[in-house]
Amino acid sequence: MLPWSDDRPRIELAARFSSRLAVTSNRPTGIPDNLFIDDDAADRHRIQAFYTSDVPHINLQDVSVRFGRVPILSDITISLMPGDVVWLRGPNGAGKSTLLRVMAGLIRPVAGIVELFGQPAAPAARRRMGLIAHHPALYEDLTIEENLRFVTDLAAAPSRRLDEALEAVGLTGARNRKASEASEGMRRRADLARLLIVEHDVLLLDEAHSGLDREAGGLVEALVERCAARKGASVIVSHATDIPFANRTLELVEGRI
């Protein structure tokens, strides 16, 4: 069940969210009914389009990236299909974070083609993608709620999503705490809550697990599962020994797959 289905009490929502912890890998094959979130026609149409299309969400062809003189990625070719959950692993400095940013359309490669949702990479496509960076993108002087309010406002999402996201990450009680005064785990959770405010077709998670306890780690999984169920795609960068809910594993070594 989705965290923002309106008709359910919030306590129950949180309970349902944590109940997803037990689920490991039961990818739905048909179109589950509960996918239709606000039951509006446009959303339904969009989801159906996903199911019937074979266009990869992200398509990289022979992509190379250099930072100044240092080569970071060399000739990367990947396609992310709808429903994919990719575990991206590799040693420190292999270029995992850079690859995620290329996928997000934030870094323009020096060579190769980047296609997002079947189109050449354009800023508009970024709105459909959620990125969790290595460092939480929080404003230290703002409270956790104000930080998330900023995202909610910019995404033009309804205000109730903010409350639901806070509830889902278990920060309702700490909403008025300044980000600079929150613990690292709380900051991580607050960062994660951003992804609950907007629905994304692609999730790019850069070490989203680090600094999270088991419960919140389960949240990452639930988020990815939900995205996959909606025929979205996710890329998870993680140094964990196993990501059971991933259906593909990519190993990046020295800037190559």
């Binding site: 003189r69 040693p91 020295e254």
Partner: peptide, 12 residues
């Protein structure tokens, strides 16, 4: 600086 790719700088 061209010689190695980024990751090879880290030796386990």
């Amino acid at each position: 600086v061209l010689a190695p790719n980024a990751g090879s700088a880290v030796i386990p």
